[in-house]
């Protein structure tokens, strides 16, 4: 099976699509990082421990 040649539109929008892809990848890293920091922070453990104790 032959793949059709890349449409001119894809060439034209390559930079834009790449930029959006990088922004979305960065968003994933940020949300993951924030979640990790919040979950491992002292305040979160304290509240979890106190709830467990009750």
């Amino acid at each position: 099976m032959n793949f059709p040649p890349e449409h001119e539109l894809h060439q034209r929008r390559k930079g834009r699509n790449l930029g959006v892809g990088l922004v979305l990848a960065a968003l994933i890293v940020i949300v993951f990082g924030l979640t990790y920091v919040k979950v491992t922070s002292q305040g979160f453990r304290d509240s979890a421990t106190s709830e467990g104790a009750e």
């Binding site: 449409h7 034209r12 930079g15 834009r16 790449l18 930029g19």
Partner: peptide
């Protein structure tokens, strides 16, 4: 319609930035 939307100065990522 894809061709009709084409412009010489199509917005690149930098334009949105």
């Amino acid at each position: 319609s894809l061709h009709s939307a084409s412009r010489d100065s199509e917005a690149q990522f930098g334009d949105y930035f």
